[in-house]
Design a binder for these strands. Structure first.
Lengths: 249, 249
DNA sequence: CGCTCGTTTGATATATTTCAAGAATTGTGG
DNA sequence: CCACAATTCTTGAAATATATCAAACGAGCG
């Protein structure tokens, strides 16, 4: 087996170490998890509502999102995921998927048998606690999204989403503070914020005009991080990153 | 110690047994958890955002809700809780509260040291898994609320909330299928659905006029459960109640 | 019995949606 | 690498769901 830093499952280790100190034994156990590796194209489904997944999905590269469709066909994006996220721990542990998980940008995933995850969680309490944290932090982000969609106006919602994305990308070791690629269409942005694509477009234009962001193609560059935080009513506490150092200006 | 069914912590046992089979040993360990009992009045806070709670709060009676306030002072209710719910597992396990927990209706709570919870979770894997499930199902409900607030119109949102409340009350062994007391003001209903109190009032009137519900004082009686489910776009799968028998007509 | 809080109703304002059409960008096959 | 097709973005005008403002009414409570 290769060393942890070059091991295929290294992104998982990196992520879980945000939540707990892991001993060498814990780390070795994690790297010894069985898995299947897959390439998945943008737009493809990883899990569909109603499935009974036997494996949990770890994102190795690319981006994914969770999503639900209402009876009238409207789509709501529930969260966005990146390298190292266990994108389907919830569905696989609960046994029956209550939402869809879909690739946003093509990438690789590792499929880990849910039984192996249950086992490692209880054989290695520090790992178990880290996994539990992972789902708890997901829950905290869901709470913030309820608030975002329920009680903030359109402009604020979008600014908030941009802030969350920027900060999470940076913590994950992707994207810089100054600017980052936002590979979402405005329609997807709309589905994440409970708005209309047209209105998302207008709000992005407004944020651009006010100098908070600048855009070219589908790249978004944050022009004024402090102002964007303010406009977006963004307080990163809900990400539970603790004392993780931040370089963002 | 008294027998499980009359033990003060019995509501916890009842709730966790929804999620997992617990052996006699597991059950005894649960009932042996140390706790402090408290009476709390309506409106009082159990936890405030930013607190670092050392104890988890179990609802023994009454009702509670989680809540967040935006920078502009708007309030968003995140979930509603009843007897047997571990209303603050998330905050206490994460270490720092990212939202407020407040009593909706006066009741009793049991405060359990979070260290005892961590210990029982890993000493008794079945209990640990049930506790994890508890937080995972909370997460599933959050996801549904994001969808509710983000993509459903006002009438549908309210009908959906009424359905969820009815079903959860029934599963918890409170309230009947036919009708139940909804002890929320219209302002609280508004904060739960991302609407205005005035508009909530109009939608409740509309639902009443259409014969889906009837109201007297703050009692809501569900007149036509099947229709309300339809209008509310309500599919109970997200509650993950599995094969729990339903008596609601 | 009077006060306070919650509900109800009406009139008006506004944020966001809807509809529509053209421009720009991205993707694709030759 | 180009041309064509298909998305995606952008902009404008009109429609509408929901918010805001305001006032009266009702119910529970000390």
């Amino acid at each position: 087996m290769s060393t942890p830093s070059t091991h295929i499952l290294a992104p998982l280790l990196r992520k879980l170490q945000l939540w707990a100190e892991l001993s060498a034994i814990d780390q070795a156990a994690l790297m010894a998890l069985p898995f299947l590796q897959r390439d998945i194209a943008a737009g493809h489904y990883i899990v569909r509502e109603g499935d009974e997944p036997q494996r949990s999905c770890l994102l190795l590269s690319g981006l994914a999102y969770r999503q639900k469709v209402t009876g009238t066909g409207a789509r709501q994006i529930l969260s966005i995921h990146m390298e190292g996220d266990l994108v389907d721990l919830q569905n696989s542990l609960l046994g029956r998927a209550d939402h869809n998980v879909q690739m946003l940008v093509s990438g690789e995933i590792a499929l880990i048998p849910v039984e192996s995850i249950r086992k490692i969680a209880f054989d290695h309490p520090a790992v178990g606690m880290a996994l539990w944290y992972e789902t708890l932090v997901d829950g905290s982000i869901f709470r913030e999204w309820i608030t975002n969609v329920g009680r903030r106006d359109a402009r604020t919602r979008i600014a908030h989403l941009l802030c969350e994305f920027a900060m999470r990308l940076e913590v994950a070791g992707l994207g810089a503070a100054a600017g980052y690629v936002l590979p979402m269409t405005q329609e997807q942005l709309a589905d994440a914020t409970g708005l209309t694509p047209v209105h998302v477009n207008r709000m992005l234009s407004a944020l651009t005009k006010d100098g908070l962001i600048s855009r070219s193609h589908r790249n978004i560059v944050i022009g004024d991080w402090q102002k964007l935080i303010k406009v977006g009513d963004f307080d990163p506490n809900y990400l539970h990153l603790g004392q993780i150092p931040r370089t963002a200006a």
